[in-house]
Design a protein around this nucleic acid. Structure first.
Ligand SMILES: [Mn+2]
Ligand SMILES: [Mn+2]
Ligand SMILES: [Zn+2]
Ligand SMILES: [Zn+2]
Lengths: 149, 149
DNA sequence: TTTCTATTGAGAATTATTATCCTTTACACA
DNA sequence: TGTGTAAAGGATAATAATTCTCAATAGAAA
């Protein structure tokens, strides 16, 4: 069974997207980083292998992945957006308001059934987001002051 | 029983915050608008009564309310943040990816129990956010193109 | 190879939010 | 009812994230 990275490459190729070394490196960086990196962080990582890469290219790749539904954007109030292209299935996040660490929640039965909501409010749902905000263990230990979400 | 607006005014007064006409108008606009307005929208509304009001003042008020935990910020990927100071108790949102309308979900049993997560991952939770993304009835009718969250 | 056009890189432009800094004013108290 | 003082306001500059622009480059189909 192919890795998420390989599957994604194949899918994009099939859809007629060209595969450049920069794009492949960006896709690899996103799909193989489980820590919900920012665009800037992926840019820094890709630059180590391809120093000529532009930040704009990373942004363009993210836009393309969003169109394809192949990346989840986690926009917090302050600072830059975080992304998860490693795990696409719906999952909740634990977000530390001290250090901004984002941890995947693996086995949660995610919130109420969307079908029920679709009917009650007439919405046609396609995705969801569940965040829990709090302090991670190390920030608790450090007695960090917390900036509410 | 006092309105949310009156209660908030009283709480802030007790905490030593001064109550200016602009501030009161901003608080009224936020607490009595259930449509999750942006800062800009509240600014426009307040300006109708107090034309001299500055946008910066609205931002400062929002910052103060965040510190007090008296406003919920809903930061979406694009555009400006949306706010809910009308309802503070935890509740989920239906967010239309066609027109950005945000609707409160009233009677949902919100997601999994935070206590369970706190134990499993060592997080000390203080708030949560549950969003459902989809198309609202009118955007479905209009066959709107949707920009994934 | 040649051709065609998607993609890239560099930097400008845009947008939302925050910071600055001087003025105004709420309000505790005389 | 005045006064002092620090909080709050107004105007605008600064910052930060993201998007746009456009000429140059390079996948990939023929
Ligand atoms: Mn995740
Ligand atoms: Mn709400
Ligand atoms: Zn932390
Ligand atoms: Zn809509």
């Amino acid at each position: 069974m192919d890795s998420r990275f390989t599957q994604l490459i194949n899918k994009l190729r099939e859809q007629g997207h060209r595969m450049t070394p920069q794009r492949a490196a960006i896709l690899k960086a996103f799909t193989e980083n489980p820590s919900h990196p920012t665009v800037e962080q992926v840019y820094e990582q890709v630059r180590r292998e391809f120093p000529m890469t532009s930040l704009a290219t990373v942004y363009k790749t993210v836009a393309m992945l969003k169109e394809q539904g192949e990346i989840i954007e986690i926009s917090l109030g302050a600072g830059s957006s975080r992304y998860d292209a490693a795990r696409l299935e719906p999952h909740a996040h634990l977000i530390c308001t001290g250090c901004s660490r984002i941890v995947d929640v693996d086995d949660s039965q995610l919130a109420v059934a969307p079908e029920y909501l679709a009917e009650k409010y007439g919405f046609n749902l396609h995705s969801q987001r569940v965040d829990y905000y709090g302090l991670c263990p190390s920030c608790q230990a450090a007695g960090q002051s917390q900036n509410q979400p």
